[in-house]
Amino acid sequence: MAITIDLSGRVALVTGSATGLGASLALKLAQAGAHVILNYSRSAKEAEATADECRALGAQVQVVQADVGEDADCRKLADAASGLGRLDVLVNNAGITKQVPNHADLEGLSKDDFLRLYGVNVVGPFMIVRACEKLLRASHESTGVSASVLNVSSIAGVTGIGSSVAYAASKGAFNTMTLSLARALAPAIRVNAICPGFIGTRWFKDYMGDEKYSDFEDTVRNATPLRLASSPDDIADAGFFFLTDSAAHITGETLMVDAGTHLGFAPLTAR
């Protein structure tokens, strides 16, 4: 039996949705009929391109420039939803990192690096949830269905691997905050998180070039138990589930979507 997801009439806000995973989640929400509020910090051109794709799917779209690390900007995003009279879905996707892949290089990170990453990756999502809380609760009161918050975290927050110690630590804090908010905001608001591993975004391709990226993707694929290198759409498929009524009985969940990376390398002979 085919399952059709219909989010017509609902309003969704996706932070950091100009490109990559945020854009993929926004497009899935648009395809399901939701009104989508897109957010960007600096990528105005890319945000407008994503907005056009959402409109081509028949969705109503707003684009709002805001830095989720600033409380005033978080409240500006909430005001955009307030102007529509409701907010049913919030995706905390915006995030930043500092590249210090050698975790033994303790001098590679400063106090300011930690504060900047925590400011966007942890404090930012807290502030946007706080700014949107009344709207999300109102959604539950009017529909009887819990509003949904999806936090886009990382396996770095579970395994301690990743682009830097500061990034992994911030995502670990984000995962813990997911649990705290799920308890505090129930039953009106469900709060869940996904923890992606590698995501083949434009950033990698621009940074490495096509040939090096292709080799890197092969390395990633061969290092995962499922022998897969995930795209933004692959990760968005899992995240989108939490935003639908199919997940109505799920809150406080932290789901790793990493092709099995957290399990460690699985030799081909084991298959």
Rank of each mutant, 00 (worst) to 15 (best):
S82T: 04
S8Q: 14
V61R: 03
T261S: 06
A193E: 03
D73L: 02
V149F: 03
G124Q: 07
R75Y: 08
S148H: 03
A247Q: 03
S139P: 02
E211D: 15
G95C: 07
R75I: 02
E48S: 06
A173W: 09
R271A: 15
E217L: 14
V61G: 06
R190C: 12
D234H: 07
G252T: 07
H140W: 15
V36E: 08
G33Q: 13
S110I: 01
A229C: 10
Q65F: 13
D112R: 11
N151K: 05
E133D: 11
F242L: 04
L25H: 10
A173V: 09
I250M: 12
A156Q: 01
Y118A: 02
A223Y: 08
V11D: 01
D71L: 14
N175V: 06
A168S: 14
G83I: 01
A248N: 08
A259E: 07
M256G: 08
A266R: 15
P125G: 08
K171F: 08
Q99H: 11
T50I: 07
R202P: 01
I155E: 04
T254E: 05
D258M: 07
A193F: 08
R42I: 01
E70T: 10
R183C: 13
N93C: 11
A32W: 03
D233Q: 14
L263H: 11
